[in-house]
């Protein structure tokens, strides 16, 4: 299989990921583009994808599916990736799958073999702005990350006492157990696509691309207007 993965819950990224190769080999990223900026997704995403497809000589006919990171992440950036993935999937008539964005970091932890404390949990956290993090709790089983709690949004100080991977750890290294070397990494399309391919190949139930906002829209229903009465002004 060859899939196009798009992930914009933090940085903007896209990747072509394939599992062509020996049956025991892990999926690999054939081409990818990643930005470091977390606020220019609407500008860079489409040209980045076009360039990547052109460079790889890949057309829609080569693709088996489109995969999108569905967050949690800051709303505007997150939506840019989801709407891009939905549109490409619609026009190319290819299946569309959602992936929880924090899984990308959990998969990096699993493949890199950095969390060798077998059977113990770890956390993945990313920047939720407003002095909070998006986070989830994972455990490794047969080399695969399993989600055990979350995703949630909240202050870093409220996280369980476990090693934390991801940019949310680096931001709050004073209050959490940030894992060195992994305290700045972000969800990226490459890792997300690799895990998506493994899950698809294993026949996992597909997930749709409903965004995980985790926060309400902040809109306040205005209260009833204060009536001016003579009595109230005495």
């Amino acid at each position: 299989m060859l899939i196009l993965a798009i992930e914009t819950s933090a940085v903007a990224s896209a990747a072509l990921v394939t599992d062509h190769g020996p049956p025991t080999a892990l999926p690999r990223v054939r081409a990818e583009f990643v930005t470091e900026d977390t606020r220019s997704h609407a500008e860079v995403l489409a040209p980045g994808i076009r360039q990547m497809l052109d460079d790889a000589g890949t057309g829609p006919g080569d693709l088996d599916a489109v995969v999108a990171g569905v967050g949690p992440g800051p709303f505007t950036g997150l939506r840019s990736g989801i709407v891009t993935a939905r549109t490409l999937s619609f026009v190319w008539n290819r299946p569309l799958h959602g992936m929880m964005s924090l899984d990308s970091v959990a998969w990096r932890v699993a493949v890199d073999g950095v969390h060798d404390d077998a059977g113990s949990d770890f956390l993945v956290a990313t920047d939720a702005r407003r002095k909070e993090v998006y986070w989830a709790r994972y455990r490794l089983a047969d080399g695969m990350p399993e989600l055990h709690d979350g995703p949630h949004v909240g202050p870093a100080a409220g996280l369980p006492q476990l090693p934390v991977y991801g940019a949310g750890a680096g931001l709050y290294a004073d209050v959490v157990d940030a894992v060195p070397g992994y305290a700045m990494i972000q969800p990226e399309a490459g890792a997300l696509g690799e895990l998506a391919l493994l899950r698809l190949a294993a026949g996992a139930r597909p997930v749709d691309t409903t965004p995980l906002y985790l926060r309400e829209s902040d809109a306040k229903v205005p209260g009833p207007r204060k009536r001016a009465t003579g009595a109230g002004r005495s």
Partner: peptide
């Protein structure tokens, strides 16, 4: 801003796809 962004990203993706 956030509203414009959805249409703009969809349109760009349409341009890439077609």
């Amino acid at each position: 801003a956030g509203a414009l962004m959805v249409g703009v990203c969809a349109a760009k993706a349409l341009a890439v796809a077609t």
